[in-house]
């Protein structure tokens, strides 16, 4: 039964509220998942700790080439940020696909990650961007790659009753680096993805220096297309190379059949198309095009 609703003003106050409630309190930011889960009994909590009034958590910053997204930054804030659009296009695109416009006004990017749904759009983008989460624990600060924040399907490694993810950070795309996000869905709003893929590429002299590709839902969380990344590394930027890499993405993918969102067979067939399109767009965003 919910009894208390607290507004900490600093990160340390938020963490100490969690601590003093001994596991009975829980972080709330956008609340778009939590406020459905509480009445349904999926989450039991007696106290909500609202972090949206901690000033630094509502900011998107660029410092020394590193972009940070605070825990209270909403999807629309990220999607509409010129900085994100320019230096982390994949995240802007992913953030603009979640839920509906109204949901995106409230739901936070970090909430999307912490809710740990297998195909959380912004998590997929953040994994491709190589993002790392800063976590405030009672004992101090900890840094964990977003990729490692999944403990299972719908399970985060973060315990929102004792920990607070304060921000996620990733390097801004530099010259000749590009990112992209593509999504297959049954309608343009209020639809979970049938598949989504994010990619970041670094190019030099007509070759891929490296690439990072994340895809979902083909595992418990965003899955790295490691074989594809390996193929691309040092390879010429050509349609043939991209197609080969896209096909190899299946090596790490294990999509399940969903009665609502496509069979395993269908998802397997079209995943390479999405990987290819994500790579093509990322290459284009890097200021190059594959000849």
């Amino acid at each position: 039964m919910l009894q208390d609703y607290l507004f900490p003003e600093t990160i340390s106050e938020a963490v100490s509220f969690l601590k003093s409630n001994e596991g009975q309190a829980r972080i709330i930011a956008g609340g778009t998942d939590l406020l459905l889960d509480i009445p349904e009994g999926k989450i039991k909590t007696s106290c909500l700790v609202d972090i949206t009034r901690i000033p630094e958590l509502s900011k998107i910053t660029l410092e020394d080439g590193v972009i940070s997204i605070g825990a209270a930054v909403t999807h629309n804030q990220a999607a509409n940020s010129e900085l994100i659009q320019e230096k982390a296009a994949a995240l802007a695109q992913a953030a603009s696909c979640v839920g509906s416009y109204q949901i995106r006004n409230s739901a936070t990017v970090i909430g999307n990650v912490c809710n740990a749904q297998p195909a959380a759009d912004t998590a997929v983008a953040l994994v491709a961007l190589g993002a790392v989460a800063e976590i405030a624990n009672p004992g101090g600060t900890e840094y964990v790659p977003v990729e490692k924040m999944y403990a299972g399907v719908g399970k985060s490694t973060i315990d929102s009753a004792s920990q607070l993810v304060t921000r996620v950070s990733f390097p801004a795309a530099q010259k000749k680096q590009g990112t992209a996000f593509v999504r297959l869905h049954q309608r343009k709003a209020l639809a979970l993805p049938m598949l989504n893929v994010a990619a970041m590429v670094a190019l030099e002299g007509g070759k891929f220096l490296w690439a990072r590709i994340a895809m979902a839902p083909v595992g418990p969380g965003p899955v790295r297309a490691l074989s594809a990344e390996e193929i691309l590394k040092g390879a010429e930027v050509t349609p043939e190379v991209i197609e080969k890499a896209a096909q190899s993405a299946l090596e790490q993918a294990n999509p399940r059949s969903s009665a609502l969102r496509g069979s395993k067979e269908y998802r397997t067939s079209v995943l390479p198309v999405l990987v290819r399109r994500a790579l093509e767009q990322a290459v284009a965003n890097a200021g190059s095009s594959c000849k």
């Binding site: 049954q186 709003a189 209020l190």
Partner: peptide, 16 residues
Amino acid sequence: QLHDSFHKYMLATADD
């Protein structure tokens, strides 16, 4: 019934 909510039943939205 597999489609028993607006979330699952694919009505076109304004965006579509």
